[in-house]
């Protein structure tokens, strides 16, 4: 892994993303959503994208804006339906976007496996449900497990709180969510942060994502949104 690039703009950070790419997009609802990277990706123009994320967009910002721009072929996620997922709902009902639903823990662990070089793993989640249909199963110590394969991204777009100039990352509260896992599973990991600090000023004991996983970093002003109608 080459050293992390520090870029001036989000547009530079998303340069080169190809049509048809698989992109892991961080965030749980809108917490940890890389808004600026997604806006830059919309300007960049890549289309026919396969998006891996927890949700399928909230409101009109972030992932929802990318969907609305018509750039997404398929969403692989755990929880598309939400009080404010109207952009996805409309596209899905019109047959304009594909959906694959994956249990949230499998989504996380399959990306973890991809980043950790694991070929596949047996998991007890979803045994006996429609989401395990057609999948290989095995009894281990009297319990049934389903064989699950890694999910790797051509790119990971995530938001962290702070980076140092080497690319070490720390996150903030539950905005951490999928970020550290996606950082390991993206061939090219692109991170937006609210602050870049001098190398040596992050506590090494507190670094959550070590720089080896991070390819590009851009500093942006933090934008915050909350999910409307959440309950």
């Amino acid at each position: 892994m080459s050293r992390t690039e520090l870029l001036e703009t989000a547009d530079e950070a998303v340069a080169g993303i190809e049509d048809g790419a698989t992109i892991l997009v961080g965030g749980f609802g809108l917490a940890g959503m890389p808004f600026d990277l997604i806006d830059a990706l919309i300007r960049q123009g890549a289309k026919d994208l396969m998006i891996v994320a927890n949700n399928a967009g909230n409101g009109e910002v972030g992932l929802a804006a990318l969907l609305k721009a018509g750039r997404v072929r398929k969403v692989l996620c755990s929880f598309p339906r939400q009080s404010d997922s109207w952009v996805f709902d409309e596209l899905y009902r019109a047959g304009k976007v594909e959906l694959e639903v994956v249990p949230q823990g499998n989504l996380a662990e399959r990306m973890r496996a991809a980043g950790a070089g694991i070929g596949a793993f047996f998991c007890p989640t979803a045994v006996g449900t429609p989401l395990a249909e057609g999948k290989e199963t095995r009894m281990i110590d009297g319990r049934e497990y389903v064989l699950e394969y890694p999910i790797k991204g051509d790119y990971a777009l995530i938001a962290a709180h702070r980076a140092d100039r080497l690319g070490n990352l720390v996150y903030r509260m539950t905005a951490r969510n999928f970020g550290p896992v996606m950082a390991t599973a993206g061939t090219t990991t692109i991170v937006q942060v609210s602050e870049v600090v001098d190398t040596g000023t992050l506590d090494p004991e507190a670094v959550v994502t070590p720089s080896i996983y991070v390819d590009r970093v851009v500093q942006v002003d933090a934008r915050h949104y909350t999910v409307q109608g959440a309950r």
Partner: peptide, 15 residues
Amino acid sequence: DDIPAVGGAMDLAIG
């Protein structure tokens, strides 16, 4: 016409 959404329910149910 239902959009399925599992979230963490299957993981919690067996975990």
